[in-house]
Amino acid sequence: MKEKMFNVGKIVNTHGINGEVKVIRITDFDERFEKGRQLFWANDENSETIPLVVSGHRRHKNFDLLRFEGHPSINDVEKYKNGMLKVKKEQQEPLDEGEFYYHEIIGCEVFTNTEEYLGVIREILAPGANDVWVIKRKQEKDLLIPYIEDIVKEIDIVGKKVIIEPMEGLLD
């Protein structure tokens, strides 16, 4: 059986001619991209992964720019465009109480505190101060829920269930 891996970034383009790639990060852990860290590249869920070791990292605008050992030019990294950077389960960082990995939250069913079913969390956005959960609803447009204490009241990772207390206007 293939080992389960977790996405930490998506390579969206190359940057310059010296082997840098432009990455949209899907992780809160800055240390994922530190020099010497190992990541795995794949272009879809079922493809073979290619191990890559970070040789350089810097932030540029809203992107992470990464270089990999043994990949000194744009020609070496062109093939990685649109692929995902992943880590193995044992590479995951330990979390504090009340913290969760994205993959634990995505797929959870969301209910109000009055037991009204809202939908399933399909994506997590990280626009700034707090994450925003995208809830896929039946025959309605997606619902955006900010991940803040005032709204998210209970998270059951094992039961894949989240209880929220919607503030006025949130469900409109």
Score class of each variant (00 low, 15 high):
N43A: 00
F63Q: 11
R32V: 15
Y102E: 04
E93K: 15
K161F: 01
D96R: 06
I135Q: 05
I26N: 05
G159T: 07
I163D: 01
G36D: 03
E104F: 04
F63S: 10
L65G: 02
P166R: 05
Y102T: 12
R32Q: 00
G19Y: 10
V12F: 00
E93T: 13
V110I: 13
E149V: 09
L118G: 09
Q139G: 08
K79H: 08
K22V: 13
V8A: 12
L52R: 08
L65E: 11
N82D: 04
E165F: 10
R32K: 04
G83I: 13
R137F: 06
I164C: 02
H60C: 02
I151L: 04
D172E: 10
E109D: 13
K160A: 03
N43R: 04
G19L: 07
D76S: 11
F33V: 13
D44Y: 12
P166G: 01
R67D: 01
L170G: 07
P146F: 00
V54K: 05
T27F: 05
L144R: 12
F63N: 08
I74T: 04
M84N: 02
Y117Q: 12
N43D: 12
D28V: 02
E20Q: 05
E123A: 15
L125R: 07
H71V: 07
I121V: 13
H103M: 11
L85W: 04
K88I: 09
G16V: 14
E69C: 09
T14Y: 05
E123G: 13
G16K: 14
K136T: 05
E140D: 12
E20F: 01
H71W: 06
F33R: 02
Y102P: 00
V132E: 08
D156F: 00
Y101V: 04
G107P: 04
E154K: 03
Y101T: 11
K136V: 06
D150S: 05
I148C: 00
V110C: 00
W41F: 15
E93V: 15
E168D: 01
Y117G: 04
I135T: 02
D156R: 09
E69L: 10
D76G: 11
R37S: 03
E168A: 11
I50P: 00
K81C: 04
E97I: 06
R58F: 11
W41A: 08
G9T: 15
V77N: 03
F6V: 13
I17L: 13
F68S: 02
I157R: 09
E116A: 13
N82V: 02
L39K: 06
A42C: 14
G56I: 03
F6L: 10
I11R: 06
V87C: 07
N113G: 05
E165P: 00
V87N: 05
I106C: 04
D64C: 10
G83P: 02
E123T: 15
I105K: 05
E69R: 14
D142I: 15
E90Q: 14
D30V: 13
T112D: 08
N13Q: 07
F68M: 14
K141V: 03
E104W: 01
A42T: 12
R67S: 11
K35Y: 08
D44T: 10
V158G: 10
T114V: 12
I24H: 05
V77M: 07
C108E: 06
N113R: 06
G159I: 08
G9Y: 10
K153R: 11
A126G: 03
E165Q: 11
G119S: 09
M5L: 11
E104R: 14
S47Y: 12
E115M: 10
N7V: 15
K81T: 07
E48Y: 13
A129F: 05
